[in-house]
Design a protein around this nucleic acid. Sequence first.
DNA 1: CAGCCGTTATATCGGATCGATACGTCGGGA
DNA 2: TCCCGACGTATCGATCCGATATAACGGCTG
Lengths: 206, 206
Amino acid sequence: MLELAILGILKDQELHGYELKKRLTETIGPLTSVSFGSLYPALARLEAAGAVKAVEAHTGTKPIPMTGSLGAEVAAFRARRGAVRGSRGKKVYGITGRGHELFAELLTASSHSPEDDRGFNLRLAFARYLPPDARLGLLERRRAQLVERLAKGRSSIRSSRDRLDNYARCLLEHRSEATERDISWLDQLIAAEFAASNSQKQKETT
Amino acid sequence: MLELAILGILKDQELHGYELKKRLTETIGPLTSVSFGSLYPALARLEAAGAVKAVEAHTGTKPIPMTGSLGAEVAAFRARRGAVRGSRGKKVYGITGRGHELFAELLTASSHSPEDDRGFNLRLAFARYLPPDARLGLLERRRAQLVERLAKGRSSIRSSRDRLDNYARCLLEHRSEATERDISWLDQLIAAEFAASNSQKQKETT
DNA sequence: CAGCCGTTATATCGGATCGATACGTCGGGA
DNA sequence: TCCCGACGTATCGATCCGATATAACGGCTG
């Protein structure tokens, strides 16, 4: 799951871990906080799988941990800084051909099963890489899932009305309202998909 | 975190694991799905800590309905291990005095730090166990957190407008709107707290 | 009534993830 | 100068999740 997000970001541009994390949290939202404790192992997995590779951060410096010539190394680093702020021990990752393949696999895979919220948000963020029909299927599956969730939430409010205090009930109601709005938001997206599809057909017939 | 939820549910009534899971998902919402793979270890931890204890499930005095000698062997095996179980192997858990203490600790603890969404939802669901001032503090800290999150989200939309395609931008905007609604919802809750507090004072002065 | 299936129920395993922490560089302000 | 905060990589232990195993039970159908 995290692999998909990483590959999707790296498709746009090469980045190093720290910047990648910031980009991730602002793309897939701060709700799903990605920690370094999962980001770096995920990058290592991807690199082992040949999906990404670490490229030199400009100026082919080798990561030599020599302590004897530390002064010379530092001096070299300082001499080189200026173009892209501080080219020190950064490891910049780039996506490979295998990485593009893996991205397509992950984006399509298991999009036909009850996915969780994060999975949907992630897939939607990269929906431009999906063919139009898969995009529409994604949205409609999500809609059905939310409708079911809403029904369950309402029934659980109804069934346990007397067992809940004000705070818990208020929480459940707020959540149901949020789900309702999500559904109508999805309806908008679905309508937009249909509109785009129709205008596409119009263009084709002319 | 999960311990807090378990203890909060068990404060109301004794339950066995399976029912506890259902109660959890309907109380703290299906968004934060609790799996058995975390529930049972958490119950084991709580039992080891003396916060909960397995009580005898009310059995219909029909402990061995199984066929042949195999059933007897299984029953004997279970008896040898000394498990507290009913006729169908249920383990009903009840909260202890230490459990009530632990619940109070967990509910109060680290409520003064930038907690995550699940932490807040959980604490709000059990807000009735908090003193009024702590309740208000919880709500206002949450509000401040959401305001900050909204500002960050908006700025990230603004800063990366050209880098995002329609889907990603739409996602971010939808999220910002949801955060706005969460904030106004919190405002309602805070106002309700003040109203309750005032009516309480009114009662005291009369 | 035999066979099958869905629900109830406990439990464990491997892998993914998180939060904290360590270690180190760098620029800026007291 | 010296400390603080931002940048940057990395790892550890605990926890959490999804899948899976096991098994008794109720209901339904042929």
